[in-house]
């Protein structure tokens, strides 16, 4: 089969051969994370920071993530740029590396990101040397502003977090892909491998999938399915698929020998 390993995704100073980012949330058991990473080949995974829970039974989540996988701490729980900045600094001090997914949410009903606070946090953290991946409401103006603020990519949402509804924001994401100089990682709402493939066919540089994998009946199988879909979608994009037509175009010659 055709090798696409030289088609790497570059984020900051790091390259990835896998274009599937995964997350550690919502797994029935943390023990499912290691085999899922192996089955999916995902090279980057999100983690969150919380006040310590004395009743947590399975220990440190970082123990379930192989060292070869890049950690992407998120700033979930932050409602302002300052809170996001504080979480990012803590994560870096804790040895999580310099990647940070900025997630600033003030809308508790739909969990949609606050682009203004996200932009402010991006500006501060990029200056501090973080590789900043902001989770954002799809908007081409904000995409440009995030670029100017030093973001390493943009992460527009497909649909609200955890909904599995796929690319409800498709037209907006398409505009971002067309106009953005930054890598575009579609994050949130991708519930099926077919939706991930669709994002990649459209020209997204990567997708981040957490809920759909973690809450499936078999996270390793789902992780592998998403990896294959992402790869298929990426290859279709690289192959430059022909446009759709409104009328039929014969694939076989219609002129023949059966009649005059």
């Amino acid at each position: 089969m055709l090798d696409t390993d030289n088609d790497a995704l570059r984020l900051g100073d790091t390259t990835f051969t896998s274009r599937l980012l995964t997350g550690t949330g919502k797994f029935a058991s943390k023990k499912q994370i290691t085999p899922m990473l192996e089955a999916s080949g995902s090279q980057m995974i999100t983690v969150a920071l919380r006040r310590v829970d004395p009743t947590a039974s399975e220990g440190n989540i970082l123990n379930y993530i192989p060292k070869s996988v890049t950690l992407l701490p998120n700033t979930s729980g932050a409602r302002t740029a300052d809170e996001a900045v504080r979480i990012a600094r803590i994560a870096r001090e804790a040895g999580c590396g310099k990647f940070i997914k900025i997630e600033v949410i003030t809308d508790m009903q739909y969990l949609l990101p606050d682009n203004y606070q996200t932009l402010k946090a991006t500006e501060i953290l990029a200056k501090e040397g973080f590789i900043v991946l902001p989770y954002m409401m799809p908007d081409i103006t904000v995409t440009k502003q995030l670029h100017d603020a030093g973001a390493a990519a943009v992460m527009p949402l497909g649909s609200p977090i955890g909904t599995n509804r796929g690319l409800e924001m498709k037209p907006m994401i398409k505009m971002i892909i067309e106009t953005s100089k930054l890598p575009v990682i579609v994050d949130a709402g991708i519930g099926r491998p077919s939706q991930a493939a669709q994002a990649m066919e459209m020209g997204a540089d990567a997708v981040l999938v957490n809920t759909a994998i973690a809450t499936s009946g078999d996270p390793s199988m789902a992780g592998c399915a998403f990896a294959m879909a992402v790869k298929a979608g990426r290859m279709a994009y690289l192959a430059d698929m022909a446009d759709t037509k409104t009328t039929a175009r014969a694939s076989s010659p219609l002129t023949g020998f059966l009649r005059e």
Partner: peptide
Amino acid sequence: IELLSFVGGG
């Protein structure tokens, strides 16, 4: 004092 730990998150 805040004592924090990494947990699952997306």
